[in-house]
Design a protein around this nucleic acid. Structure first.
Length: 285
DNA sequence: GGAAGATGACAAG
DNA sequence: TTGTCCTCTTCCC
């Protein structure tokens, strides 16, 4: 579930529900019990998302640092808290709402120093108003790693995951194996602007929709996507299905341990590249 | 009832 | 590059 937009929504929801109130803090599962006891009854000041990280601030310059990883979930529900169902690492609650955290890779009580070092190791977040795309550009243009790998490295760019990276590369017609150093600056600026718009839309709707108006199911008279992640996409998890634009079957492969999807016809190396558009080049990495 | 898989990240080699 | 962790859901027997 969680790419950056999910965490930003979550931060907003947690702040709206629990912000500036004293909350009960529990760890039904037990793995966060010691820290929960320290925070129980404290004032929850607010919540912020940075990339895929969530920071819930409590009085006394204390933060609960949460990272959902691949499978984690943090669900806010109205109403008094019932007995926990399943494995609940952390529960926040007051009289009229509760939030259950399950399966995070990180749930840790931290102080100002640890918070600072976390922020320092993250690249610009397209959802943050003061993010600097040039900071990401400097790393991309220095690297010979495939652009598809760089987009998912959180020190390069914070908040982009497997869906946004695949869809962004499609929307910009960029072959995923193109080395970062061959990416043109203009192309990068366009990609950044697009990411900001796409991810803001993701925060608004809670899902990842990336198709242009002319490629929606209605416009194309095709069946809408039925999937657990909702939105309409060009390539993500569409392996073997026809490209919405050119009908070439979408390709997939595992790159750096993650499933990559792309259209071999619509996506080409950056024009600044001195390579030909021969697909054999793409295998070089 | 069990295996596989999933929008992530890290350590070890 | 591989293995490991986190939890739940889906699919197949």
């Amino acid at each position: 579930m969680p790419e950056g937009h999910t965490l930003h929504r979550l931060a907003t929801e947690i702040e709206a529900t629990f912000g500036r109130r004293r909350v009960r803090v529990e760890s039904p599962q037990g793995r966060f019990a010691e820290s929960a006891a320290l925070l129980d009854g404290a004032l929850l000041r607010g919540a912020e998302a940075v990339g895929k990280h969530l920071l819930v601030e409590f009085s006394g310059r204390r933060w609960v640092h949460v990272h959902l990883g691949l499978i984690g979930g943090f669900v806010v529900t109205r109403g008094p808290a019932p007995p926990p169902v399943g494995v609940v690492r952390l529960r926040l609650r007051h009289k009229t709402a509760y939030a259950d955290l399950r399966g995070p890779t990180t749930c840790q009580l931290i102080g100002p120093g640890e918070r600072e070092s976390l922020l320092a190791r993250l690249g610009p977040d397209p959802l943050s108003a003061d993010a600097d795309p040039e900071q990401a550009w400097r790393r991309i243009t220095r690297s010979s790693a495939p652009i598809a790998v760089l987009l998912m490295q959180q020190p390069v760019l914070a908040g982009v995951g497997n869906v946004y990276r695949a869809e962004l590369l499609f929307r910009h017609g960029l072959e995923p194996h193109t080395p970062g150093r061959l990416l043109g600056h203009d192309r990068w600026q366009a990609m950044w602007g697009d990411l900001v718009a796409l991810m803001r839309e993701g925060v608004r709707t809670g899902q990842i929709d990336t198709v242009h108006t002319e490629h929606t199911p209605e416009a194309m008279a095709r069946a809408p996507r039925v999937d657990d992640h909702g939105g309409e996409v060009y390539v993500y998890r569409r392996s073997g299905q026809p490209c919405h634009v050119c009908e070439t079957p979408i390709r997939t492969e595992v790159l750096a341990g993650r499933n990559l999807f792309w259209c071999p016809t619509c996506q080409r190396p950056d024009p600044r590249s001195d390579r030909t558009t021969d697909c054999a080049d793409a295998a070089d990495h």
